[in-house]
Amino acid sequence: MSVANNKLHLSSPSLKFISRLFILLSIFYFMNNNLFAAGLQFLRIPVFSRSEGMAGAYTGVAEGCESFFYNPAGLSAGEKTDYEATAGYVSWLEGMSKESIVFITPADIFPIVRGISIDYFTVGDLKKYNVSGTEIGALDYQDIAAAVNLGADMGNFIFGCNLKYLKEDIDKYKGSGFAVDAGILYPFSKTNRIGLSASNMGSFSLEDVSIDLPITIRAGLGISGKKVTLGLDAEKNADNTYLHLGGELKLQERYFLRAGIKNAEMGNVTTFGLGMNTELGVQDEWKPSFQQGQKTASKKVLKINYSFQGGGYFSESIHRFDIGVSF
């Protein structure tokens, strides 16, 4: 094994072992009748706006902080030289909300560590009642997921995974567990690539009661040009198989228009999104490296994104907003 040009080069037997292991794990979960059981559903709620403006058609596109959710291999694609920190928020149905914070590191800082994320989910103002129907206080309900992303560009394809710690508090009841997300990207041309990912493979216990996690399998095609990015995804979860189609148009190198459509649990849903990147300046700085420090010219870029989701059975509007900076 060797590291060169920010790529991890493995021997042929190692490549075969990793790819076969990923395929075998996928087959095992597909054959399991309890594959798509419904626990900890907050893990299925995406937060960041770029992917959701494109209706979640992102498994093949897989860039930036959204890769944590759709395809962990995305954080190991390309020659990333900047740090990036992003915070996102989504106001979900019936007062539920989810916040995410993602921090991404340059490819040369550590050999395979690409970033970390923290998700926090709450269900709003819930009340507790006794057997006679009298209110006796507020019900505390919250979920937390913390993850570290590992990955490498292996030459013919890109591999990535998230190792996640899960925690749930429902009033006096406590639960915890661990899960893994895994994904691959296969670039078959300079602008086109195929993605495959499996999310939430693991175990969770709430007060000694085992709860199956909401496994989600995705396959997608990403097409990225100078001005236009297109995505097409197929998603399999507990309810059904769904299709996502979306696109992004870049204007003047700093503004972005996004739109998409998907058939999901809530019915046919349309999405729309806006984005803006603003350069804050350029400065020389010393960046630590896994092998040695190096002086680089770093651009500071502020990234602001918003997305809107409408339609479906509930006819409720869902808004997402995130702000980030690369430096």
Rank of each mutant, 00 (worst) to 15 (best):
G95K: 00
K250G: 02
C161H: 02
G60L: 11
Y83H: 05
F327T: 09
T278G: 11
A55W: 00
Y313E: 07
A77P: 01
R218L: 08
F110Y: 14
L40T: 05
A198Q: 11
L245Q: 07
F314Q: 11
I194D: 01
V148W: 01
R50H: 12
V113I: 15
A85Q: 08
A37V: 00
N32A: 09
S11M: 10
I116K: 05
A55E: 05
N305H: 03
S197P: 02
E84H: 10
S317T: 13
F178R: 05
P214Y: 05
Y129A: 11
A62T: 08
G74F: 01
G220F: 12
N192H: 13
I27H: 13
Y129T: 12
Y255M: 07
P72T: 11
D171L: 02
V113K: 03
F188G: 03
S176T: 04
K250P: 03
M266A: 14
K287T: 13
I318Y: 00
K98W: 09
N240V: 03
K250R: 14
G175W: 04
F103E: 09
E135G: 13
S298F: 03
N162I: 01
L257E: 05
A219T: 15
D153Y: 04
I144Y: 05
M31E: 14
A147Y: 01
D140L: 07
F290D: 00
L8Y: 10
K262W: 01
M96K: 07
K262F: 01
L232C: 12
E285A: 10
V180R: 00
V102G: 00
M54T: 08
G64V: 01
L257Y: 09
